[in-house]
Amino acid sequence: MTLRITVAAPFRHTRKDALRKNELVYYYALDRKWMSTEQATVLLKRAEESGLLRQENGVYTILFDPATETIPMGFRPGSTVFEAHDPTQELIGRITKARNVPETEVASEMNAVIREQFGGNLLPPAALVLLAKKYGVPYEDLREVLIAALKKG
């Protein structure tokens, strides 16, 4: 995943598990010249929303071991690191692929779970996790982002 590699890079390079915002922006925009300072700020926000970084008092802490990411020689992140990631849509896609059915069928089944089993008192991300468990579709890597979506919803 390019976002994970991009987030891991400055922490691996500096051998630290916490960096200030200005250090990260400097690394991305001026040191590596991967993006503008505005894009670096967007990247940090996206990494936070994805559960990869936590920010407290202007200091960003990485929430995974950066040593687990291999940074290829000559790596340069693409524009996909700035695109919003929809974990709900990704899980629908995984279930669709595993069952070899159209997305509309998965969405319909999700709505049926919400309506029939929970009387409308369940949010879509939770219903999708239930369907993923039912069909043996892996969802664990999306867990933190789905929980964050549930808290917002």
Rank of each mutant, 00 (worst) to 15 (best):
R4G: 05
R4Q: 12
V7M: 08
V7A: 11
A9G: 03
P10N: 12
T14I: 02
T14G: 03
R15N: 13
L24V: 09
Y26S: 10
R32M: 14
W34I: 07
T37R: 15
E38P: 01
Q39V: 02
A40I: 07
K45M: 06
R46E: 11
L52A: 04
Q55Y: 01
T61M: 02
T61L: 06
L63T: 09
F64P: 08
P66T: 05
T68D: 14
T68C: 08
E69P: 03
I71N: 06
G78M: 12
S79I: 15
T80L: 09
F82N: 10
E83L: 14
E83K: 15
E90K: 09
E90W: 05
R94V: 05
P102S: 10
P102W: 10
E103H: 13
T104L: 12
T104R: 12
R115Y: 05
E116G: 01
Q117S: 13
F118E: 06
G119M: 07
G120C: 09
N121R: 15
N121P: 00
L123W: 08
P124F: 08
P125W: 01
A127G: 10
L128W: 04
L130D: 00
L131N: 01
A132R: 07
Y135H: 15
Y139N: 08
R143F: 02
E144S: 14
V145D: 08
I147M: 12
I147S: 13
A148L: 15
K152M: 12
G153N: 12
